[in-house]
Nucleic acid binder design. Structure first.
Length: 423
RNA sequence: GGAGAGGUGGAUGAGUGGCUGAAAUCAACGGUUUGCUAAACCGUCGUACGGGCUAAACCUGUACCGAGGGUUCGAAUCCCUCCCUCUCCGCCA
């Protein structure tokens, strides 16, 4: 959410930013609502001031035993007018809020301008593609042959876009989760959190999933609870409505959670295998920091996520998303894309974003720069470090041998009780 | 699931129709005192939005005592609905 005053005073800048995003938000409508609301509010406040002082007077006169019938009648009328104005204000504010809630974040000036993902910029490529003297199989085939991945039975017990991992496949998933958490907590200064896997609507509003993207979520019937689509939601909202001490910043948290997404509108896309599931595991990185530090922190957070790919010796590229491809709440995003031999291309495995104060305003997360100064909004960032399911895919596919067996990356061997290969 | 208690400012906690944006205490912050620490004393000490001012300070208006609605000239205080927390019993990983 953008600041209302900021929009009012920077209307052209916001209009341009929204244009670059191809947002269909009509700002002139905002201007009308904004002006109208201010007029009504002014009148309501003036009338309330009058009522307050006259009511006080009535109290005094009553105590002196004087007649206040006329004054009370007058004030009843003022009250009626106030009530009318308040009802109008409720309506105006609802429209205004709806507006403010639907305006996406303003992209940072360093974000490449373009209509869609075709304008994304590859920042760097890291790691060597492994030479394979055989036709690489995809993870579905490899997983089925090795008995570590079973999608058919998941369809039976649940439905499409779910999977069972068996034996060393399950073990590999667990090893990846632990490995990632270990690296981030031991080497990158993150504190581990294990949050609830369900959240309420307020939390989802805070990070920006609601109200606009309700269709992407799984809601629990009969409750105001949703399955988390990403750990970003519970973890960022930990500090909702709180004021953090300035000296404690940056606060860096990492969390493993499963993630649940309806994937509405992606029917027919990535239907094979683990790439696009309704449930997948992810280790998330979340950072709360001072506004002036957030772009440094974005580089650090991205680097922390990259470390995992480097240690696993998986080739990847870092991509700066263009204005047209940027998420709703993000001011700047780097995607990490890992090489998948079966698809002969890089696929997203992490998305690292700086939301500036967009989420902080929605969730009311602030910090006090000094004990005596006013609280200010923090900047929030997050990134996958990494999507575990896709990492599993990347490991299996990149470490496959000609005979269909899979080697275990060196750094994972100790997490797999010394297992060096799956065959 | 059954029964009960309660939600007030950073914390504890008073307040049952007007002079209460809210006592008191604690914490915090500034200062005095002090060899240092502590103590004592004095002062400050909510947030949001609007108006005044070039602007900070400051002055001023409105709103906010879990949320929403109602009664009233006037509500933290009375009424209704909802949410949340706690305790006991039952059940349970």
């Amino acid at each position: 959410m953008l600041d209302r005053t900021f929009i009012r005073e920077n209307i052209d800048r916001v209009r341009m930013a929204l244009g670059n995003r191809h947002s269909d938000v009509d700002l002139s409508q905002f201007q009308n609502l904004d002006a109208c609301e201010r007029t009504f509010r002014k009148e309501a406040e003036e009338l309330r001031a009058k009522r307050n002082s006259v009511s006080e007077q009535i109290g005094r006169l009553t105590r002196q035993g004087q007649d206040t019938t006329i004054l009370r009648k007058e004030m009843r009328e003022v009250g009626d007018r106030i009530k009318y104005l308040e009802e109008e204000l409720v309506r105006l504010e609802a429209s205004l809020s709806q507006f403010l809630h639907s305006i996406p974040n303003v992209p940072n000036s360093s974000v490449p301008i373009g209509p869609d993902e075709s304008a994304n910029q590859v920042i760097r490529r890291v790691g060597e593609l492994r030479a394979m003297e055989f036709a690489p199989k995809d993870h579905v085939e490899l997983g089925a042959r090795l008995g570590i991945l079973d999608i058919e039975r998941a369809t039976k017990i649940t439905g499409a876009r779910f999977a069972n991992y068996w034996g060393l496949g399950a073990r590999l998933e667990r090893a990846l989760i632990t490995f990632m958490l270990d690296v981030h907590t031991r080497e990158h200064g993150y504190q581990e959190v294990l949050p609830p896997f369900m959240v309420n609507d307020q939390a989802l509003f805070g990070t920006g999933q609601l109200p606009k993207f309700a269709a992407d979520l799984f809601k629990i019937e009969g409750f105001n609870y949703y399955l988390v689509p990403t750990a970003e939601v519970p973890v960022t909202n930990l500090y909702r409505d709180e004021v953090l001490e300035g000296e404690k910043l940056p606060v860096k948290l990492t969390a493993y959670t499963p993630c649940f997404r309806s994937e509405a509108g992606s029917y027919g896309k990535d239907t094979r295998g683990l790439i696009r599931q309704h449930q997948f595991n992810k280790v998330e990185l979340v950072c709360f920091c001072r506004p002036e530090d957030s772009y440094d922190e974005l580089e650090k957070l991205t680097a922390a996520a990259e470390t995992i790919l480097q240690r696993l010796e998986l080739p990847y590229q870092v991509v700066a998303l263009s204005t047209g491809d940027l998420g709703f709440a993000s001011a700047k995003t780097y995607d990490l894309e890992v090489w998948l031999p079966s698809q002969r291309r890089y696929r997203e495995i992490s998305s690292c974003s700086n939301f500036e104060d967009f989420q902080a305003r929605r969730a009311n997360i602030r910090f006090r720069p000094d004990p005596q100064s006013k609280a200010r909004l923090v900047h929030t960032l997050n990134g996958s470090g990494l999507a575990v399911g896709r990492t599993w895919v990347a490991v299996v596919e990149n470490y496959q041998q000609g005979d269909g067996s899979v080697k275990i990356p060196e750094v994972l061997v100790s997490y797999m009780d010394g297992t060096r290969e799956i065959r």
